[in-house]
Simulated assay, not measured.
Amino acid sequence: MTALVDIAHATKRYGTLEAVRDISFALEPGQTVALVGHNGAGKTTLIKLMLGLVRPTEGSVRVLGEDPAGGGTEARRRLGYLPESVSFNTALTGREVLAFYARLKSEPVAGIQALLDRVGLAKAADRRIGTYSKGMRQRLGLAQALIGTPQLLLLDEPTTGLDPGLRMEFYEIVGELSDRGATVVLSSHVLTELEERTERVLIVSRGHLVADGTIDELRRIAELPAKVRVSVAPGEAERLRGLMGDPASGRTFNGHRVEFDVTPSEKIELLRRAAGAGDLIRDIDVVPPSLDELYAHFLRKETP
């Protein structure tokens, strides 16, 4: 399968600053990928490299089979981009803005009505953007990124300003695009949103790619403890802690819930003991390390 994005040993320097350092990865069709990192980690530079806005100082970048900075137009027509800070001419209407971008991509203007409907702006299509709220401008930016049914979508903080309902609709759109074979790259600091919605995570820190894999793969690499939360009848928490083998283990909450931190090798044994407690147990939840915890772990490993 041909990669839609192929970055090989890319380094980007601005004077003495190395914004990106020897990064390599390939993105396949249909993947939904989280690109995460602290401010200044190199995420924006990677996006600029994929957009062709900057050239790598060393290494190579291929997007949709082309050098994105080489001046070709075909790859750009099949690429959608939503920047972190959406800005449009406030004197134009939403419809006029989408018509402008449709013409830039040589796409039929007639198709913008469906996009306006899809992002919930049909009723505001002929209002000037100066009257739009932040969330409405964000939705218009998403509609602009979707023009031409792109094969690659680069979305930087895409849910900023969207209420919970619209965030759900946004991820439905992302799922539909992925099902059609598009590759979607989501750069966001809201890691809880990305955890269940992305197949792969790229973590960058100080210009390095410090982790690359699925959530499950990163959990195996990190070997962080999972949390086992056991609910018991009120007042029975201390008895449970004794039955689990180490009276000092576990943390008690509200007298009826005990939480244990367990390594992968300890988890099965603890669950076996909990099951042996019989009617004392009311519920058991196993909570694996979250993307937030994995992110913090890999950043700590990178910090000298």
Rank of each mutant, 00 (worst) to 15 (best):
V54N: 05
G165E: 08
S231W: 00
H208A: 08
S178W: 05
I268Q: 14
L291K: 00
I7Y: 03
A124F: 08
K267Y: 06
R137M: 05
L271P: 02
V201S: 01
L294P: 00
T93Y: 01
S106G: 11
G213S: 11
G130F: 07
L82K: 01
L240C: 04
L166T: 13
T198L: 02
S290I: 00
A122G: 06
S106N: 12
R118P: 06
G70N: 07
Y14S: 10
R241K: 13
S60A: 15
T57A: 10
L155G: 01
E74L: 12
D279L: 11
A3S: 13
T32H: 07
A226H: 13
S24Y: 11
L152E: 04
G135W: 09
T149E: 09
E302S: 11
P158W: 07
P68F: 12
L4W: 02
G40P: 07
T2Y: 11
R197E: 13
A69F: 10
G15V: 05
V61R: 02
S205P: 04
P264M: 15
T11I: 12
T44M: 04
E302I: 13
D246V: 12
D283L: 03
G120K: 05
G175R: 14
L186K: 05
E269F: 12
A41M: 07
R241S: 05
V230A: 02
A26G: 10
S178A: 15
G255K: 04
V190R: 09
Q144H: 08
K43W: 08
I221Q: 10
L121V: 09
G72Y: 07
A277C: 12
L79P: 00
S85C: 10
R55K: 11
M244I: 14
F88Y: 11
T45N: 04
G42M: 04
T45S: 12
S87Q: 15
E18R: 15
A110P: 03
G120Q: 08
M50V: 03
F88A: 00
P264I: 15
T16Y: 11
E66W: 05
G278F: 06
L116G: 00
V286P: 04
D67T: 13
V86M: 03
A114V: 08
D212Y: 08
E199L: 13
L271G: 00
M244G: 02
